[in-house]
Design a binder for these strands. Sequence first.
DNA 1: GAATAGATCCGC
DNA 2: CGGATCTATTCA
Length: 178
Amino acid sequence: MYRLDQKFFQQPTLKVAKKLLGKKLIFNNLCGIINETEAYIGEDDPACHAAKGKTKRTAVMYGMAGYSYVYMIYGMYYCLNIVTENEGFPAAVLIRGLTLPADKIIKLNSNKDLILNGPGKLCSYLEINTSHNNINLNTSKFFYIQDHNINKQIDYIATPRIGIKVGLDKLWRFKIIN
DNA sequence: GAATAGATCCGC
DNA sequence: CGGATCTATTCA
């Protein structure tokens, strides 16, 4: 059980996106297992927010690996990303799905795991918003990623990314299968 | 200033 | 399949 740090995130984005599957996201007093991710890689990826270069919003993607990139989408939802690769190269992994273990969910009084499928729902449940943009997950005390199953095999599928109109040829969405 | 598209979700 | 709802970015 150890925290992932800059060394992990500062790797090729596809590798980070796949390896994040099965890892544990900790945010305040909540935690969940990442079950779905997407990669957005550089200015040559037409679906990446940085495809048109550096702007105020995308500047964080050009920064140090391991920082959060949170933005509002469609006026009602937030999406959580983690910045990857070397400083100066804009790339990030979108966290699209979390599984919250039933025994950790006090609110629901249920014996079923809570599946948060979708980046908007995930941020809504965890109460992540733009005030959590540009946070250093390598050092934050309340917001970070843990590895807790070092030798466990994770099976996943690769598909086109969801909700975009360009870059559909790339199979950069990764989802855990059982 | 105004226009517009957008890495979503839910209900019909 | 359309509506909700807002903001970063682009364009005039």
